[in-house]
Design a protein around this nucleic acid. Structure first.
Lengths: 213, 213
DNA sequence: AATGTATGAATAAACATTCATTCATTAATA
DNA sequence: TATTAATGAATGAATGTTTATTCATACATT
């Protein structure tokens, strides 16, 4: 007993690991989850399929995630957080110009859609799925960022007096993502999203936000 | 064999029915399907739940539909067809004004969202689900309608030269639906969609379509 | 009595999740 | 250095649940 305990503590302190963790595995699982959901839809995606696409045994997923819902949740929430982080950085580095912030934000969305099509489509699907909602604190953080943006715009005259938070949120976070996805999916599979779309979307949004209704 | 055939034809000709069909059933099933999907999401919706909500036996659904997918498909396609019918009527009755068509179209979408919230939310969910795509002929019909709208707008000067079909489609069929749903869902459950939104959305869309990029 | 409507228990397939087992790696020992 | 013991990583067959679908039966109407 004592000896056993000793050996155990010893091995912990020494950092003993019976087998090197294949660090790639987590990445493979994340990619496979997104790819499978994009290819087949959430309803038809099974743990077995994800595991197969990730070259991992079925049971192994449960070592890293408590279940299917948790796995998808985490991937989605990560993405939502990182988009908000991004917006925060853009606001802090352009404290007087909504145009600059929106332009950069849209540019990032388009780059993301082009460079990480799987992740981008995955995010788009979950954005419109009622079973995956972000939690309250995340929503509140987002509202605060939009408030910041609004006050910048009202000082500079880029945002009209009667524009409200939800209108800004909708056009920045939903309109843009939907438009990009729509254009990619519908143009006969040819990826036509490009820098012209940055200008197009930015102008549309700024006009909408400027206008007093 | 002959006799059997005779009896069958006879019963058809005479309109013999062993039991009066409960005509309400089909309506109940349709409503229950939409409600269940809106409440729980497509993934978590089962035939058993739909049947229970419709006060119908589980097996009875298979008398009217070949299966779950066919049931949902049909409800969705019906809606897509009726929206296109509606647009066609609006185009025919306003052959020179895009503004009139778009205003009426948006008014209808908002009325629909307010008066048939369940059906409206159901449509919204399927609009963004990859597993439910409308077939080619329906897509083509829609494109033709949009072409009509475009040529009206280019004669009247309401639609810019460089605007393409997909841009018109996106703003009329996706932007509007998404905005209405977003406003309904996010305003803390209070239904704030009203006639001001008709003006707001119409102005936004017409500005976007007018602008030459 | 004849016949189509409607039921819901039974069936079989699909699925998420678990867990006994195997495997790879390292530390300790000789 | 070679061997062994210990440990946690990883597996995948087994489990139990959920689900869509079927079908033998009961029911209502003419």
């Amino acid at each position: 007993m004592n000896e056993c305990l000793f050996i155990h503590l010893h091995s912990i302190l020494k950092g003993v690991m019976a087998r090197k963790i294949d660090n790639d595995k987590l990445v493979r699982i994340k990619k496979a989850t997104m790819k499978t959901i994009v290819d087949r839809g959430i309803e038809k995606t099974t743990i077995a399929m994800i595991a197969k696409n990730a070259n991992v045994s079925g049971g192994y997923l449960y070592r890293l995630y408590s279940g299917k819902q948790a796995l998808i949740d985490e991937l989605y929430f990560d993405k939502v957080v990182s988009i908000n982080n991004e917006l925060e950085i853009l606001i802090n580095s352009n404290p007087t110009s909504v145009t600059a912030i929106v332009t950069a934000f849209i540019k990032n969305r388009i780059n993301y859609a082009v460079n990480k099509p799987e992740a981008s489509k995955f995010y788009y699907q979950l954005l419109h799925n009622n079973n995956f909602k972000v939690d309250k604190s995340l929503k509140e953080r987002n509202l605060l960022l939009i408030e910041n943006l609004k006050s910048i715009g009202q000082k500079s005259g880029e945002i009209g007096k009667n524009i409200n938070i939800l209108q800004i949120h909708f056009h920045l976070f939903i309109y843009v993502v939907d438009y990009i996805n729509f254009k990619k999916v519908n143009n006969f599979g040819i990826e036509t999203i490009n820098n012209n779309d940055v200008i197009y979307l930015t102008e549309n949004i700024l006009n909408i936000l400027k206008k007093d209704n």
